[in-house]
């Protein structure tokens, strides 16, 4: 790991790149239903963005800037995925049945909303959480 990062260009550019990567990952997440992408890919890409920042700025800065508890993020993701299934189950449908419909929203026009998106958000959160937990745990280990 880079102990004393002093590469100015690197630092400036990585901020821009990270924003682009995160934005693209959000795009991938939302487009997943009809175009390549989805929660898994989007999640991995977000994890990459965070990792790149981490590589350049070091662990303390990243912890101050992005104070997430990735273990909680995993559990929230898993809970989201499980609970979307439970809702349809309580409503009398098979477990994990997903629903979709088309809505006319102001400004956005016709939009398709699905419960699968919530499920996919669970996937997204879990993937980010798990990837970051994997890597940060290994990196932080100093023994």
């Amino acid at each position: 790991m880079i102990k004393e990062p002093n590469d100015m260009m690197f630092r400036v550019f990585i901020r821009m790149i990270a924003i682009i990567v995160v934005t693209f990952s959000i795009y991938l997440f939302f487009s997943g239903h009809n175009a390549p992408g989805g929660g898994f890919i989007g999640g991995l890409m977000s994890a990459i963005a965070i990792l790149v920042i981490y590589l350049v700025f070091g662990i303390d800065r990243i912890k101050a800037a992005l104070p997430f508890n990735y273990t909680y993020m995993m559990s929230i993701g898993l809970l989201l995925a499980v609970s979307t299934g439970i809702i349809s189950w309580i409503a009398g449908y098979p477990y994990l049945k997903q629903f979709f419909d088309y809505f006319q929203l102001p400004f956005f026009g016709e939009v398709e909303l699905t419960t699968a998106l919530i499920f996919d958000l669970g996937v997204y959160l879990l993937v980010v959480g798990a990837a970051m937990t994997f890597i940060l745990t290994i990196v932080e280990d100093d023994s």
């Binding site: 390549p36 994990l96 979709f100 499920f119 798990a130």
Partner: peptide, 30 residues
């Protein structure tokens, strides 16, 4: 399922349970 991307539709809808259990595995591994 209202989606054109078959892969993703299979993941989140048709075989949602598989995905959920895979998430569980991933979480446990982490």
């Amino acid at each position: 399922a209202g989606g054109y991307n078959m892969v993703n539709v299979v993941l989140v809808d048709f075989r949602g349970l598989d995905t959920m259990l895979e998430l569980l595995v991933l979480g446990i591994a982490a």
